[in-house]
Structures are given as structure tokens and as C-alpha cells.
Design a binder for these strands. Structure first.
Length: 222
DNA sequence: AACTCGGGGCA
DNA sequence: TGCCCAGAGTT
């Protein structure tokens, strides 16, 4: 089983040798804000907004100091901007209250912060601090289920547990980014692109889809 | 487990 | 136009 995972990761790496976190990860606080903003919206758009945002806001104090409406206006081109502005202010306040304005390292500490859930906590912990964590987003979940690494009915939590069990610990962070790229550019939710997939031979969903396609083709020929 | 927030991108 | 997107909180 682990051998198959190894094969998948190697092939994904061949397809996307540049796969890495596209968000700024030099500054943990900026990474945290960027990941919060990125929920349900493309990273392209997030990058556009954060470019100006990070010129204006440097530290948690800066986000807390402005009226909520001002911050909302500054991120208005992003979806869910009202909630996100609120969350960032609450988040900044709790960083000031509990960590003197610094960003904590572990995913447990991060997840306790306002507006920070499981995925955000895992991304920040692993990317900014090198903590062992696998962030499971929609791409990672879909790819894992299609390949057969986990079961269709598994919850996000179960997917994460399974991946942590099957993937060597020192590759958790890479695995996340590889699956993101693979899911976004190849194994898309609508179009998995199975006929041109290097993982087809061992992919559960791919085999099923190809079999179905072959059946449809032979039916047409008759 | 389902619902809500939400503007931009893409077909 | 209609559908989807590097999610989290509430019910």
C-alpha cells in the first residue's frame, strides 16, 4: 500500500516539479492572514488583494486599529469579505491577548484562534514553522478519494488521519502541495482527465471511468 | 450534516 | 448566465 502512495507522489512530482505553497511564507503572520482570506476563493485573487493589504497593514495592531468597515473595504474584491474582515480583526486581537502579537507554532494552538480552522492551522504550522501536519482541503480530499487512498465516505478528519498513517512524516508538507497542484490542474473536480493521467493504472476512480467509457464506445460501434 | 457567507473567474 | 472556488462558524 505504501508502495502505491510512493508511486503516486513520484508521478505527481514529475508532473509538477515546482509544486509549493504559492502564498507568502516568509512572514508567519502574513501567511496566516493570506490563508484566512483564501477560503473559497482562488489564490490568484488573494495575491492581488494581499499585495496592497500588506503594504498598509504590517502587524496585528494595525488590523485592530482601523474600523471594521475600513478593513472590509480593503478586501472587498474577495468573496466572503465581511466575515473575513471580522475574523482577521478577532484573530489579530487574540494574537495580541495571548501571544503578545506573535503567531504560535503548533496546529493545536493555531486552531484555537478565532477564524482559524483545521486547514488554516495545518497550512500555517507546516509551511511557516515546519511542524508535521497535512492540510486537507477540497483538492486533497478529492484526489485521495479518487485514487483510493481513503474511502469515499470518509470525513475530512478521517482523510487526514489516513494520509498521516500512509505518508512518511517528512513528506507531509510536500504531499499537501503536490495534491493541490494535481487536483487543481489535472484531476479537476469536473474533468479528471483520466486518459492522460500517469496514475491511471492504479487509480480506483480512473479505472472505473475508463471502463465506463470503453463500454459506451463498444455500444456505439455495435 | 446542512446551511450560510460572496465577489470574481471561467465556460 | 450559471457554476465553482487553498473554509469556518452556527444550528
Amino acid at each position: 500500500m505504501k508502495k502505491e502512495i510512493r508511486f503516486c507522489l513520484d508521478k505527481m512530482h514529475e508532473m509538477f516539479p515546482e509544486a509549493a505553497c504559492e502564498l507568502n511564507h516568509e512572514n508567519p503572520f502574513e501567511l496566516l492572514v493570506a490563508v484566512v482570506l483564501s477560503a473559497q476563493c482562488t489564490d490568484n485573487l488573494v495575491n492581488k488583494v494581499t499585495k496592497e493589504l500588506f503594504q498598509k497593514y504590517k502587524k496585528p495592531e494595525d488590523y485592530v486599529a482601523v474600523p471594521l468597515e475600513a478593513l472590509q473595504q480593503d478586501i472587498r474584491s474577495i468573496g466572503l469579505y465581511r466575515n473575513k474582515a471580522k475574523n482577521i480583526q478577532k484573530l489579530s486581537q487574540s494574537l495580541l491577548d495571548r501571544y503578545n502579537g506573535d503567531v504560535p507554532r503548533t496546529k493545536e494552538q493555531l486552531m484555537e484562534l478565532a477564524g482559524v480552522g483545521r486547514k488554516t492551522a495545518n497550512v500555517v504550522a507546516s509551511v511557516a514553522f515546519g511542524e508535521p501536519a497535512i492540510a486537507v482541503d477540497t483538492h486533497v480530499e478529492r484526489v485521495s478519494k479518487r485514487l483510493g487512498i481513503c474511502r469515499w465516505k470518509d470525513s475530512v478528519n478521517e482523510v487526514e488521519q489516513t494520509l498521516m498513517r500512509k505518508v512518511p512524516k517528512d513528506e507531509w508538507s510536500d504531499t499537501h502541495h503536490l495534491m493541490i497542484f494535481f487536483g487543481r490542474y489535472h484531476c479537476k473536480s469536473r474533468n479528471p482527465n483520466c486518459p492522460e493521467c500517469p496514475l491511471l493504472q492504479l487509480c480506483r476512480e480512473g479505472q472505473k471511468r475508463m471502463k465506463k467509457r470503453d463500454a459506451a464506445n463498444t455500444a456505439v460501434l455495435k
